[in-house]
Structure formats: C-alpha cells, structure tokens
Amino acid sequence: MQRMTAAPDELALLRGRAYGPNADIHDDPRALARLRHLEDEERRAASHADAPVEVSDEEEDGTGPNAPTAAAPAAADVAADTTAPRRPPRRIPRAWLIVWAASVLVVAVSVGALVFSLASIRPVSEVTGATQVATLDQPLDTTGLDWFPEWFGPQSEVVSYEYLGLVVMRLPAGMYASEVECINVAIISRFTNNGSSVGYDGPTYYGCGAGPFPPTAPMVVDERAPDELRARFPDGTALSFVFDGERVGVFMGEPTPTPTPTPAPA
C-alpha cells in the first residue's frame, strides 16, 4: 500500500517560503525542519512507487483487477512532477558582505568627523555694534588738487570721495591687487607737489575685497587725523570705510567707555 504524504497545500506553502522570490524560511527553524520532513516523505513515496511489484499472469496480460488503465498516469510521473528540483535562494558571498560593512563604516566615520568638526568650531559673532554715519556717493572734485593726476596718472580710473579732510579712493581691480577692487584712505593735506614730483607724508588705510566680502578699510582717529575729523569724532574712535560696488559707507564703532580712575589712598 502506498504511503500517504502531507497535504499538498502545506508542502507548496513551505516550498514557496523556501524557494520563492520572498524566501524567509531560513529565519523559521521549525518551518524549515517541517519542509525537510515532508520532502523526505515525498521522496520515500516516490521510491516506493518505483519499486518492482510482482504481478500475476492476468495482471501482466492487462486483464486483472489491479491492471492500470490507459488514461491513469504512473505514480512515478506524478512524484516526478511534484519533486522537480527548485533553485535555492542565492546566498550573498561573504566577501561582498565584508566590503558592504566596510563602506558603511567609512561613511559613518566621515559623517561623524564632519559633524564633530562643525560642532567644535567656536562661533565668532559678526555683530560689531557699528553705526553708519555717512554715505559717500558724490565723487571728489579734483580741481586744484595738482597732486591727483600726477599721483594716479591723467587717465586714471580711480574714483575718489572726500570725507572730513580724508580722501577715500576706490581703486580698480588689478591696480594694487590682482582681479579685486580695493579702497585707500589718506589725508588730503598730506599730499605735496613741488612741480617735479608728488609726495605723501601721512598714514594710509587700505583694504581689498574677496568674493562676497566688500573692500573695507578701517582706521582709528588719533593725533595724525585731519582737524575736521577730530572735531567730529574723539581720538580713539574706530571708523570703517566699506565700498558696496556703487558707494562708500562710513561706519563708526560703538564707543568704549573709559574707566574712571580710582584715587589713591591718602
């Protein structure tokens, strides 16, 4: 008598979990053991069907009661259909897993280093407390300033502005620095022209731009400054001249209070 196997539905379900596109049976040891058990039973049933069976003369002639009909399929054929080899799920090579894990580690370390470096930067505030006190947008009238064309040349592209005895000169790119604009601040009364040469005897304040940063020339008012400037701002006042591409802004730093001296004990 042929041994009965498990329900086809259960076996088909387990095979789908083992050999299908979404195979997950490797995470379920009990289901995997059950699949192996059912497949072993199926193979034993197929082997039993293939074993030689003694038949009588009537059965050999096809007239006996146990003779197979012409339309009935052989048990071995049925077993062969149900035991067709299935391709097992492809395993990822160990070397690929190692490379993948290493790449994830490298990315994690890089991101961590970037975050740490950004977090370790000490912030510097750009707020200076400066107040704009003037806007220079009217070019200086150089009539009577015989030193100007001699200093920069008759065809000079320099644009100058006057502010309380100072001359603020916007210098074209390439004149003092390659491919960037600069500004220069000097004292008008310190230029001299003796007919053969032009000279300057005084402090100068200079600055150039870079990318989005505008040309900026800072200075501190002191005893060398013009009288007009010292009449407006006390000594020690910080000023900054900033060229925005069209005009020059003059900024004054927030005054720093001078501490009151403590009298010495008698």
Score class of each variant (00 low, 15 high):
Arg3Glu: 09
Arg3Gly: 10
Thr5Lys: 04
Ala6Ser: 12
Ala7Tyr: 10
Asp9His: 10
Glu10Tyr: 04
Glu10Lys: 09
Leu11Thr: 13
Arg17Tyr: 06
Arg17Met: 07
Tyr19Ala: 02
Asp27Ser: 15
Asp27Pro: 02
Ala31Gly: 10
Leu35Glu: 04
Arg36Tyr: 11
His37Cys: 08
His37Gly: 09
Glu41Asp: 14
Glu42His: 14
Glu42Thr: 09
Ala45Asn: 01
Ser47Lys: 11
Pro52Asp: 06
Glu54His: 09
Val55Gln: 01
Ser56Thr: 15
Glu59Gln: 01
Glu60Asp: 14
Asp61Trp: 10
Asp61Lys: 12
Gly62Ala: 03
Thr63Met: 04
Gly64Cys: 01
Thr69Val: 03
Thr69Lys: 13
Ala71Pro: 00
Pro73Leu: 11
Ala75Thr: 02
Ala76Asp: 11
Val78Thr: 12
Thr83Asn: 14
Ala84Cys: 04
Pro85Asn: 07
Arg87Phe: 08
Pro89Gly: 08
Arg90Asn: 06
Ala95His: 09
Trp96His: 14
Ile98Gly: 04
Ile98Pro: 02
Ser103Trp: 14
Val104Asp: 05
Val104Asn: 07
Val107Trp: 12
Ala108Gln: 05
Ala108Glu: 10
Val111Asn: 05
Ala113Lys: 05
Leu114Asp: 12
Val115Gly: 03
Ser117Lys: 09
Ser117Phe: 13
Leu118Ala: 10
Ala119Asp: 12
Ala119Phe: 11
Ile121Gln: 13
Arg122Glu: 15
Pro123Arg: 11
Val124Ala: 09
Ser125His: 05
Val127Arg: 14
Ala130His: 07
Ala130Thr: 12
Val133Gln: 00
Ala134Phe: 07
Leu136Met: 09
Asp137Lys: 15
Asp137Trp: 08
Gln138Thr: 15
Asp141Arg: 07
Thr143Trp: 00
Gly144Ile: 08
Leu145Trp: 01
Asp146Gly: 13
Trp147His: 03
Gly153Gln: 03
Pro154Ser: 15
Gln155Arg: 07
Gln155Asp: 15
Ser156Asn: 12
Glu157Lys: 14
Val158His: 03
Ser160Gln: 03
Ser160Asp: 00
Ser160His: 05
Tyr161His: 06
Leu164Gly: 04
Val168Thr: 02
Arg170Ser: 01
Arg170Leu: 05
Gly174Thr: 08
Met175Lys: 03
Tyr176Arg: 15
Ala177His: 08
Ile187Tyr: 05
Ser189Cys: 01
Asn193Leu: 05
Asn194Ser: 10
Gly195Pro: 08
Ser196Leu: 13
Ser196Met: 12
Gly199Thr: 01
Tyr200Ile: 01
Tyr200Val: 04
Tyr200Trp: 08
Asp201Lys: 14
Asp201Leu: 15
Tyr206Asn: 02
Tyr206Glu: 00
Gly207Arg: 02
Ala210Val: 05
Ala210Asp: 15
Pro214Phe: 03
Thr216Glu: 03
Thr216Trp: 01
Ala217Pro: 00
Met219Ser: 04
Val220Gln: 07
Val221Tyr: 07
Asp222Asn: 11
Glu223Val: 11
Pro226Asn: 04
Asp227Cys: 01
Glu228Ser: 06
Leu229Pro: 08
Ala231Phe: 11
Phe233Lys: 01
Asp235Ser: 13
Ser240Phe: 02
Glu246Asn: 10
Arg247Trp: 06
Pro257Asp: 06
Thr258Pro: 02
Thr258Asn: 01
Thr260His: 01
Thr260Asp: 12
Thr262Lys: 12
Pro263Trp: 09
